[in-house]
């Protein structure tokens, strides 16, 4: 069984890059653990449950459907994306997408031809969802081209990265 962690968004549109940034932080944390001397054989120190060989971290900025292509063969998929739900910037929402639809989430203003939520629902209809699909949404505030990342969103990125590590560890 393999694990895919995938961030989506557009890094040039301020908070829309939150999902990408979170994926990058997960990758960095995994790499740091891999490099830890006590971790012999690729197992990270202090987190013996993580088998790094089976974890892939991706950053995507194409349409939502490329997500469905990317997760083929993975049994646990964690999607990280910026969202706009009207909550406070930096709020984190976690959805178990096998259990409930993503209808309430509106992804950030990235150039997704088919949004993440719609792609997930198409995959559900076609029976192409992975065995476990978790979506983390980070509430963004500024999505303009060239906008700065909102500080609360930057903090949430860090928080989500940690929670994702826990998530895959407990799988």
């Amino acid at each position: 069984m393999s694990i895919l962690i995938v961030g989506v968004g557009n890094a040039l549109r301020g908070d829309d890059g939150a999902g990408l940034a979170a994926a990058r932080r997960v990758r960095e944390k995994l790499a740091a653990r891999q490099g830890a001397p006590a971790g012999g054989g690729g197992a990270p120190a202090g987190v013996p449950c993580l088998d790094l060989e089976r974890i892939t971290v991706l950053e995507l900025s194409g349409g939502g459907m490329s997500l469905v292509e990317a997760w083929e063969g993975a049994s646990l998929v964690v999607v990280l994306d910026a969202v706009q739900t009207g909550a406070l910037p930096g709020s984190i929402v976690r959805v178990d997408a096998r259990a409930e639809p993503l209808g309430s989430l509106r992804s950030g203003r990235s150039s997704h031809g088919v949004g993440v939520a719609e792609a997930v629902e198409v995959a559900r209809v076609l029976g192409r969802l992975p065995a476990r699909l978790i979506v983390y949404g980070i509430e963004g505030k500024s999505f303009a081209l060239g906008a700065d990342v909102t500080p609360a969103v930057a903090r949430a990125v860090e928080e989500v990265a940690l929670r994702v590590l826990d998530e895959v560890c407990l799988s």
Binding site: M65, S66, V68, E69, V114, E118, E121, V122, V125, L126
Partner: peptide
Amino acid sequence: SAVHMAKDHRDLVQRGLQLKKAGN
């Protein structure tokens, strides 16, 4: 939407996605 269409035209949408994947 594509979601609604996929419910009734599963094979058609699958073919479209498979075709897209060849390009991908």
